[in-house]
């Protein structure tokens, strides 16, 4: 080399497998908490390595040396997410307010879908939606046991409030119907005539995520 160095000591990524190049990066960056789960991540298992998202010398985004800015980088493979965030009701990812890695850790997590979790183990949703976390005197138990995605589609939805169906009552009735299969005891059905009045369950049951004063989530 012109400077007199030993060229053989320079690690060359070319020709190496994704696992080899990633291992090289992680020999330093693997100590960080953020990257600690990479080895068992879905990305690693799918042969997605560090250099698929990062470029140490030719990055187009200076913060994390990404080859492309979020969310376009993620959309490159996750095309369904692009359509989800284009739906009229969506988390503000395309607007730049929320980033993919606010909820997911692309380097892997201890849970499925590379989802982040709060240190207490609670869903990452509560990082922003702090008023829904509780604990409440009267918990709507499935919110805790099944998670937010029981009723909401987090990326984007064709329905307001990111609901899974367009009419609230049906969402409620699907669980609040008698069933003998539930060993834990099923929730009772409503006692309301669907035609006469109470056309939306949430008109009265306003505190549906949990209440401190009403066991039927009125207040």
């Amino acid at each position: 080399m012109a400077g007199g160095g030993d060229k053989t000591k320079i690690y060359v990524f070319e020709g190496k497998s994704r696992e080899q190049t990633s291992a090289r990066c992680l020999s330093c960056h693997g100590e960080a908490h953020e990257q600690s789960h990479f080895a068992e991540s879905a990305h690693a298992s799918s042969d997605v390595g560090c250099l698929d998202c990062h470029s140490p010398h030719h990055a187009k985004e200076s913060q994390h040396l990404l080859v492309q800015e979020q969310p376009q980088l993620c959309y490159g493979c996750h095309t369904s997410a692009k359509a989800d965030f284009a739906k009229p009701f969506h988390h503000r990812v395309n607007e730049g307010l929320v980033q993919c890695n606010d909820c997911h850790n692309p380097h892997g997590t201890a849970t499925v879908r590379q989802l982040r979790a709060l240190p207490s183990g609670d869903a990452v949703c509560y990082k922003c939606h702090v008023d829904k976390q509780g604990p409440f005197v009267y918990e709507h138990v499935p919110v805790k046991t099944e998670g937010c995605s029981s009723c909401h589609t987090p990326h984007g939805s064709t329905n307001p409030r990111l609901l899974k169906v367009s009419i609230v009552n049906m969402l409620c009735l699907q669980c609040h119907t008698f069933s003998s299969q539930l060993t834990a005891g099923g929730p009772i059905g409503p006692v309301h005539n669907q035609s006469a009045k109470y056309q939306a369950c949430t008109m009265c049951h306003t505190q549906i995520h949990g209440s401190n004063f009403s066991d039927v989530f009125f207040k």
Partner: peptide, 17 residues
């Protein structure tokens, strides 16, 4: 992108059309 969502289940309810 094409997205198809289907969700079918039996429900019990009260109604007087």
């Amino acid at each position: 992108n094409f997205n198809s969502v289907i969700q079918n289940a039996l429900i019990c309810f009260d109604d007087t059309p």
